[in-house]
């Protein structure tokens, strides 16, 4: 559907060159909600702009439905762009036009009839819940409403792909929720593939099925969201995951614990079914150890439960070893936390 092959992009300004993308490859399948996460300056905005040819790669290729973009003429490229909607962080609505006219613009550019435009815009405004705002101007709307207009505008030409460049980054958490829910609905109801760029892991967690993590112009990790959240491999990925799934306890707490009651502290991670098993009670029954649960947390990602737990095991060395062996079989990941 969308394929990026070894894309490089170098910007040169005043003799200084900056390599924004250093050989990025990516594959987005039809129906995916694919998230690209990274800190600012990681190259993710440049990457998403390759998909609708707002930027051209210095080398490498971008393919949409198997067709390389660099094989198209300017005119053909414009036709391709009309099938790719784009939603922006700062909405980019025309301040001089009403909500209705903003949504109508892609259709006006396409030379559609007045009647057709009126029908489609009315339909779109109803879909995003802004029927009563048709005659308002963007400056009279809230951020969330502006983004709904932006989304309606992006959908006007019945696109097969929707690109979201930090679409929720300028919005408050509650509004972010409603916009994400809208994007999810669009993905499901219209079978539109969504590529979303963000620096908020919560966005990835809530609607994406796949994720790519970017750092310094490279993709350092990518895969199904569930796998990446369950077993982040790169430290940067780990940091992002920890913004939504916390699994640390303060060092001072650890210190106090070990002084008061020497034992060993472990971090456990569960994915799916194992999260709902009574593992701890079995553990206590099978081994002569005391368990002190320091932290526990459950998160839902892609309708699957991810569990996190930190516990202290106190007991004889042999019993603790036995307990660890038991836990290794039951949970998806176990890691000892060193006392500081």
């Amino acid at each position: 559907m969308i394929e990026i092959r070894d894309a490089r992009k170098t910007f040169t300004r005043g003799g200084l060159s900056h390599e924004a993308l250093k050989g990025v490859s990516l594959r987005v399948e039809k129906g995916d909600i694919f998230g690209i996460i990274g800190t600012s300056g990681a190259g993710k905005s440049t990457l998403i702009r390759l998909v609708n040819a707002l930027e051209k790669p210095t080398s490498g290729q971008v393919l949409i439905d198997g067709q390389p973009l660099d094989g198209y003429s300017e005119r053909e490229l414009r036709a391709v762009k009309k099938k790719i909607g784009m939603v922006f962080q700062h909405f980019n609505l025309l301040e001089s036009k009403t909500v209705f006219d903003n949504v109508a613009i892609p259709l006006v550019l396409d030379g559609r009839s007045k009647k057709e435009i009126r029908e489609r815009v009315t339909e779109l405004l109803a879909y995003v819940g802004l029927s009563d705002k048709a005659k308002s101007y963007p400056k009279e709307l809230s951020g969330g409403q502006k983004q709904r207009v932006g989304i309606a505008r992006a959908l006007a030409n019945h696109p097969s792909i929707l690109l979201c460049d930090e679409a929720t980054s300028a919005l408050d958490p509650q509004t972010t929720q409603s916009i994400l829910a809208l994007l999810k609905r669009i993905n499901e109801e219209f079978d539109i593939t969504i590529l979303i760029v963000t620096h908020e892991m919560a966005v990835i967690q809530q609607i994406c099925n796949k994720v790519a993590v970017m750092q310094n112009g490279e993709i350092i990790e990518q895969g199904y969201v569930l796998n990446v959240f369950g077993k982040p491999e790169h430290p940067t990925t780990e940091n992002f995951v920890r913004t939504v799934i916390r699994n640390t306890i303060p060092g001072s707490v650890l210190q106090d614990l070990n002084r008061d009651r020497p034992g060993r502290v472990f971090k456990l991670e569960f994915v799916g079914d194992s999260a709902s098993q009574p593992i701890i009670s079995r553990l206590v029954r099978s081994f002569d150890v005391e368990i002190n649960i320091l932290f526990a947390n459950m998160t839902e990602v892609q309708q699957t439960t991810l569990g996190n737990m930190i516990l202290q095991i106190v007991g004889a060395d042999r019993e603790i070893e036995g307990a660890i062996a038991f836990l290794k079989e039951q949970v998806d990941r176990i890691e000892e936390v060193e006392a500081i």
């Binding site: 707002l54 414009r78 762009k81 009309k82 790719i84 784009m86 922006f88 980019n92 613009i105 550019l109």
Partner: peptide, 9 residues
């Protein structure tokens, strides 16, 4: 940029 993204001439 939005105009370009829409494929405007």
């Amino acid at each position: 940029e939005a105009a370009q993204a829409m494929g405007a001439k």
